[in-house]
Design a protein around this nucleic acid. Structure first.
Length: 806
RNA sequence: GCCGAGGUGGCGGAAUGGCAGACGCAAAGGACUUAAAAUCCUUCGGGGGCAACUCCGUACCGGUUCGAGUCCGGUCCCCGGCACCA
């Protein structure tokens, strides 16, 4: 008789055994092949683990456990991305130091993760707020600074007045603050930028060498936004400063003969340079003020009416035909893309077309094939050049090459590539972040903190509020701000801003490989052994931020020789969102958040792990359903009860051989393809068939346990022990299937007549056509359906189907 | 507007061009029980028929094929990303 199953005791028992046996620990320079599986480390919030975390973590947890059984030296680490606003806000409200808040939250998270039986290597845990960790985050910043990839510049930034913090474009999408949801305004500020744009081409190229989900690659390509074209100089006529030029960027140099006006961004320096010649400065100034009032979001809103002001007193000259054209300022051209100036070709660009119509400007057709009375003709695949002098008769693409060559020869323009991606705004006016290791010396200028003085530690604070002017709380700490210049030793001041939350997460996967190294961010030999990450899973929401940033840093670290591989992640997948029971995104305000704490008390870790993987297609969003968990609980009960019908035979029974071989193949392949739901469904079917036969051999059960082990490790270990096996599953080998035994000798073949299903016949798996026909004719119903009609054609696909055409 | 992924029972979802709805949930009926829970058995896309059966059915219209949820052309609708990007 088997003992009653107490999930609470049993799960704890096995968690202790695994810890004692160190089954989760990766071995530096182990002799087995290595596998590095990674999940996005969590932000340790005060509310604890979320069911979304479970979905994100359990997939790689399953893969990691499977890989260990397959004989790999598995690195499956965990850590905490612990700098950030919520902790700082909590500290502000309660007066409790963020360090203590963070420690508490990490302790809570760790206990929860362990309760789920996740096989993380806890001996390698990293915490981005640990000074021994952020020392290296600062070190990386200094390397970027030394290479000229970190620079300070005045810029209009996205600023949240409520949070009093500069936001990156990624944190203010849609013109709304990522954190508090209030509207973002434009503010001129000193901003530290990282030149991620310099790495745009490497980031694009690198995508050819990695195995990311296609939609992930596409989002990154889209985000980087490469476009090829030309920069062309237009000389300026009228009263403009002599020799003054306007440089434009265009992807359509072929349309140069169709240019009828020019548009520059309202902030374009050309206006100040030519202020004396401009006759309607007042009007222009009014428009500029108007534009500045609008935030970025309003300004780029599509389908908005075109507005603008013509600049009186100056004009531009088309370099190929000498035509003088008017220059406008308009807010549909922005200073931060291309050159902040465009040549307008209304006949072949929808925006220019709208603008020309509104301002009554001429429209010159230079590509035949459209109806420019009605709309701009933008089809570049089928157009032929007209009204374009030496380009006439050419296709768009050829014309583009020819004109670019021509301009280059005459010194009027060059081939040029532009990227949509902006440089990364890298400072925040916050306390709970990595201090930027920079010193301002009145004599020597901007200098970095010497590397041997790292870490530059966060000083203790009395208040976490920003200064009245919105400066970082660190600006209030005289002992921190005032320092000596590392170069001349004179009085100097420190940078008081801190790094954004994305900093620490941009290299954490490297630190896991060598988490306690004091000489380097990680040892090169260890990096070569464990790196790069073989499989990284996380959320789609991080594809254009964290994933791009960390690839950028890794490429940079590779370039300076600190890391031995270019691309940090060999493979990247993403889980779908877990929605609330009502089918909408979980949020506190909607009250549809599901907390794992009470669930684990009611059902145990195994049931929840199983359900979270069974609930739907892994990559799609799926609503949570409390009721559906019952199905997984019943499955687990039925699994345990198999002990009652298990015989002593160590092999497979004849009847179950095909069944178990098929199951091994199915489950193993489904895990690799992240089709966890169908893997579990197949195991449920298996158990249903076993109960129908009312017996299972010990050997069959053992194989079944090994297949289930990555999903529900606790109960499977327990059953394995009850069966009398001395070796724990965690130290066993993954079962293999025999390809010759996948198909049973006798199969049911569907029979169609004129493409309609009429029934099935039982035949041998390699039956010939005649044998199948005999079987069909000996079945009275099928024979009757076939009747005396002449069979015109038979389509027989062995093992699949037979179709009679009559 | 551009790019991408989808649309299948009451619900979550399965189906290398080959038995649509696997697996699970919910629901209904039955067994066990003094009773309930748990468990087990049965039914479970729609219409018609006493029945054996039969017709319809994977957003919509059309096509290819012996055979289409799956492939092709068009339409509609949802979701995700990018967006006056020159």
């Amino acid at each position: 008789m088997k003992p009653e199953y107490n999930f609470k005791q049993t799960e704890q028992k096995w968690q202790e055994i695994w810890e004692k046996e160190k089954i989760n620990q990766a071995v530096d320079f182990g002799t087995k092949p290595k596998f590095y599986g990674l999940i996005e480390f969590p932000y340790p919030s005060g509310s604890g683990l979320h069911v979304g975390h479970l979905r994100a973590f359990t997939s790689i947890e399953i893969v990691a456990r499977k890989r260990r059984l397959e004989g790999y030296n598995v690195l499956f680490p965990i850590g905490f991305d612990a700098f950030g606003l919520p902790t700082e806000n909590f500290a502000m409200q309660t007066g409790k130091h963020p360090r203590l808040v963070t420690d508490d939250n990490i302790a809570t998270f760790t206990a929860q993760l362990k309760a789920f039986g996740y096989s993380f290597d806890y001996s390698r845990t990293v915490d981005t707020t640990d000074k021994n960790y952020y020392k290296w985050t600062q070190w990386i910043f200094i390397q970027l600074f030394k290479k000229g990839l970190a620079y300070k510049s005045k810029a209009y930034v996205n600023y949240c007045e409520k949070c009093k913090v500069i936001l990156a474009n990624e944190e203010s999408q849609g013109g709304v603050c990522d954190r508090c949801g209030s509207e973002v305004v434009q503010k001129e500020k000193d901003v530290w930028f990282l030149k991620i744009r310099d790495y745009a081409e490497k980031l694009l190229d690198g995508l050819n060498d990695v195995d990311y989900l296609p939609r992930i690659k596409l989002e990154q390509i889209n985000w980087i936004g490469k476009s090829e074209g030309a920069e062309i100089d237009f000389s300026v006529g009228g009263g403009a400063v002599k020799g003054s030029k306007l440089k434009i960027f265009t992807t359509r140099p072929d349309t140069l003969f169709g240019v009828t006006f020019m548009v520059i961004a309202p902030e374009h320096p050309f206006i100040a340079e030519n202020a004396k010649s401009i006759k309607n400065m007042d009007e222009i100034e009014r428009y500029r003020i108007e534009t500045k009032k609008k935030n970025e979001f309003e300004r780029i809103r599509v389908n908005k009416d075109k507005t603008g002001v013509m600049i009186n007193g100056v004009c531009a000259v088309n370099p190929v035909n000498g035509c003088e054209i008017p220059i406008f300022i308009a807010d549909y051209v922005t200073l931060d893309y291309g050159t902040g100036a465009v040549m307008a070709v209304p006949a072949h660009d929808t925006r220019d077309y709208e603008f020309a119509k509104k301002f009554g400007l001429p429209i010159v057709e230079v590509i035949a094939g459209g109806d420019i009375e009605r709309e701009a003709f933008t089809d570049i695949a089928n157009g032929i050049l007209i009204n374009s002098d030496f380009l006439n008769g050419l296709a768009v693409k050829e014309a583009g090459h020819k004109i670019t060559e021509y301009l280059a020869k005459k010194g009027l323009g060059t081939r040029r590539i532009n990227y949509n991606m902006k440089d990364w705004a890298f400072n925040r006016q916050r306390y709970w972040g990595e201090p930027i290791p920079i010193v301002y010396c009145p004599k020597c200028g901007t200098r970095h903190v010497p590397e041997n003085q790292l870490p530059l530690e966060l000083p203790p604070l009395e208040s976490y509020r920003q200064t009245e002017s919105g400066e970082s709380p660190l600006a209030n700490v005289a002992e921190f701000v005032n320092c000596k210049c590392p170069e001349c030793g004179g009085d100097a001041k420190r940078e008081t801003d801190t790094m954004p939350q994305w900093a620490g997460s941009s290299w954490y996967f490297l630190r896991y490989i060598d988490p306690r190294n004091e000489q380097a961010l990680a040892d090169l030999k260890k990096l070569s052994y464990f790196g790069p990450v073989d499989w990284y899973n996380g959320g789609m929401e991080h594809v254009t931020r964290h994933l791009i940033y960390s690839r950028f840093w890794n490429h940079f670290l590779y370039d300076i020789g600190a890391v031995p591989f270019k691309e940090p992640y060999v493979k990247r997948t993403a889980q779908g969102l877990v929605l609330g029971e009502n089918g909408v995104k979980m949020s506190k305000s909607l009250g549809n958040v599901v907390s794992p704490d009470s669930l684990i008390k009611d059902y145990g870790a195994d049931v929840l792990r199983l359900y979270i993987m069974f609930m739907g297609d892994y990559e799609s969003p799926v609503p949570w359903s409390n009721a559906s968990i019952n199905g997984c609980r019943r499955f687990i009960d039925r699994l345990y009860n198999l002990l009652d019908i298990t015989d002593k035979c160590e092999g497979y029974s004849e009847k179950h051989t095909g069944l178990i071989n098929r199951l091994i193949k199915k489950v193993s392949e489904d895990i690799e393809a992240m089709k966890f739901n169908t893997a579990i469904a197949a195991m449920m079917s298996f158990i249903n068939e076993i109960y129908a036969d009312n017996y299972i051999t010990k050997g069959e059960l053992k194989a079944f346990l090994l297949l289930l082990y990555p999903f529900i490790p606790h109960m499977t270990e327990e059953i394995n022990e009850l069966l009398g096996y001395k070796v724990i599953l965690s130290k066993s080998s993954y079962p293999k299937y025999d390809a010759a035994k996948l198909i049973d000798d006798e199969i049911e073949l569907p029979v169609q007549i004129n493409g309609r299903l009429k029934g099935t016949v039982k035949i041998s798996k390699d039956a010939g056509l005649q044998a199948v026909k005999d079987a069909v004719l000996s079945d009275p119903i099928l024979a009757a359906a076939l009747g005396s009609n002449a069979v015109k054609k038979e389509i027989y696909v062995p093992k699949k189907i037979i179709n009679f055409i009559i």
